[in-house]
Design a binder for these strands. Structure first.
Lengths: 357, 357
DNA sequence: GCCTAGGATGGGAACGTTCCCATTCAGAGA
DNA sequence: TCTCTGAATGGGAACGTTCCCATCCTAGGC
């Protein structure tokens, strides 16, 4: 009795069935099909179809070291930004016949280490790193071993690798310019706890720098934990302290969400106090009168990461200098940065349309 | 000159360094550590650390067929629901020392087929399927070959596999009961194009059934494409046609988003026309006066899928009957289903708190 | 003192590929 | 007729594991 049902057909079985050698079958499935005579091609194709043969990637990966696998370390998979970028990475992989092994680390350095080890144990050919902490040492080792890797969004200063992400300085510039042009004078830069995460650091550094340069503007910076009451507290205190017109600049999507909640809880109308978020979210047009955002070109960022990896893969020999690819954001102007001085604004159900300038 | 930098250390190299046999090293790394004498353990551990050895999963997978890999087919990775479930799947995998190979199909049956082939070519040990179309034939083959697979959320009637997902009938019951209790009498069931997707079918079937049973309620059903003006058109027409009090029941998160946009564009206050969405979203508390939702226990659903797979994996021999695991949703009651008959409701910035009943 | 049990260890054959070399063969050039 | 070329094909050795069997050794029982 065949307890185990028919396992996978192997190359050898196809070869026997087609009356060919395993080499020929291997060639047939490795893109060297045209080297085979038409007759042989037909026989192999037929046999393979009949047996339902699929090359075993594990075995493939073993021999040549070509696993056709890319690894991606994601700091927080539940962040829509991460998912959007991941989607771009995936698209680019597909176009190149690569598969993607994704590991989510939930912003936990320990998991980061574990998952890094895991990904390399599958002998991925390249790594897209969106790291929370700094497994710098491990990454350095990998880089030295010649594994192509690209840092995404967050980078580690000590590690001299390729980088892809948003032009954070430009983003903050655009945000401040917009808020300033709209008439806001007192700015609160709100961020998740800055910690090691480089974009957060860069964004607020640029913020401080710009404020120092422009005497007309005043500003503060805070990075409260996002759960619980802390945000509301911080925002409330800021507004009590600051003169108007005041605005909030949110360093990422999570912060925008928390800040919006806080403002609502405080009973403050958006626009009266300005709100501008980095990262576009589905619902930003829905909360009246719409929340102004700086959208990242997530798809492009993801694709660029893979492209960079591919370049390293192709180049393998010489050591190109590390490259940084920065993308500019796009301003989505909505009502939350339209300064209203009416004490009682009309209750207009705004369409979430951008205004034609 | 060593053009290639130090590649990965192998089992054999560790064995040599530790003055041990490869068998012993293999044992050391395969959880049979205690069979080795303390001295040998120490030597191997030392050598491995020194050489930076990591077992090659490819080679492992090749020999025993144990890839320690689970595959997951996701219909739409940009849907927060999918991501949330995926997070659960991932957690459960981690706890079991499994890795997850994720393939997103963007709701495209062709990609579904391709990715299915891909996943199996990595010899995944089990498959979590959240399929858009119906690669039923391929899946049937896989199932027959003894590959454990579990259908997630969407299932294919022809395929007699394990299923995990929301109790859709219960969800619709809860929705209708709630809307009805709140005083709404004319219901519009809004769905993405139903097509093959089973949850959509089940939800609206239950909807029709319930309406047929309750003469006090009237209802319609539509599944317009979500992009463009179609939703607004459908909602507008419905409201023109139906008597009040009327409410919208949205079959999933995407629809809720589209419906909210449509209502805003039509200048309709939420609550005056009811809105209840299946799937909880970050921002549902933010759009005044808050959108009532039925939240799925996404984490639990994801974990249940892996658990089911594990059960099959353990059981391997006998054929347990297919099992269905259905989860109940949770009602998040907010302002969008609080029937207001005021022609001009007070402009209250509602806190997005649940009311204590 | 011999036999045996069983724990610790090691040798070698898979696993399913790829890839470096043959080997075969037909036709062209001498 | 003989060699030479190159295209078509095949044989066999890796790749890094696991796992089935030895083999060795130390004690314990007689």
């Amino acid at each position: 009795m065949p307890a185990r049902s028919s396992r996978h057909a192997t190359l050898l079985e196809v070869a026997r069935e087609a009356n060919a050698s395993k080499t020929s079958v291997s060639r047939y499935f490795s893109g060297e099909r045209e080297r085979l005579s038409p007759a042989l091609q037909r026989r192999i194709g037929e046999a393979a179809r009949q047996l339902g043969y699929r090359p075993n990637q594990m075995a493939r990966g073993l021999k040549g070291g070509r696993s056709r696998l890319l690894g991606m370390l994601v700091a927080d998979i539940r962040n829509p930004y991460s998912v959007a970028v991941m989607h771009g990475v995936e698209q680019a992989c597909r176009e190149r016949g690569l598969s993607l092994l994704v590991a989510n680390t939930d912003n936990d350095p320990a998991q980061e280490r574990t998952h890094l080890a895991l990904l390399t144990s599958y002998r991925v050919e390249g790594l897209v790193i969106n790291a929370a902490g700094s497994p710098t040492h491990e990454l350095q080792d990998l880089a030295e071993q010649g594994l192509p890797l690209v840092l995404l969004d967050r980078w580690l200063e000590e590690l001299d690798a390729d980088r892809v992400g948003l032009d954070n300085a430009l983003a903050v510039d655009m945000a401040i310019d917009h808020l300033s042009a709209q008439g806001y004078r007192h700015l609160l830069f709100l961020s998740e706890p800055v910690g090691q995460a480089s974009p957060r650091q860069q964004r607020w550094q640029r913020f401080e720098q710009r404020l120092a340069d422009e005497p007309a503007l005043n500003g503060e910076r805070h990075d409260p934990p996002l759960d619980g009451e802390a945000v509301q507290q911080v925002v409330g205190d800021f507004l009590a302290r600051a003169n108007r017109p005041a605005a909030l600049l949110c360093a990422n999507g999570n912060v925008t969400l928390a800040a919006t909640r806080a403002l609502q809880a405080l009973g403050i109308r958006l626009g009266e106090v300005g709100l501008l978020g980095i990262d576009e979210l589905d619902w930003c047009g829905l909360v009246p009168p719409g929340i102004t955002t700086l959208a990242q070109p997530t798809e492009a960022i993801g694709r660029a990461a893979v492209q960079q990896l591919q370049a390293r893969l192709d180049d393998s020999g010489s050591t190109l200098p590390p490259r940084r690819t920065l993308f500019p954001p796009t301003l989505n102007e909505r009502g939350s940065t339209r300064l209203t001085t009416f004490d009682k604004a009309p209750d207009n159900h705004s369409e979430n349309a951008k205004e034609t300038p």
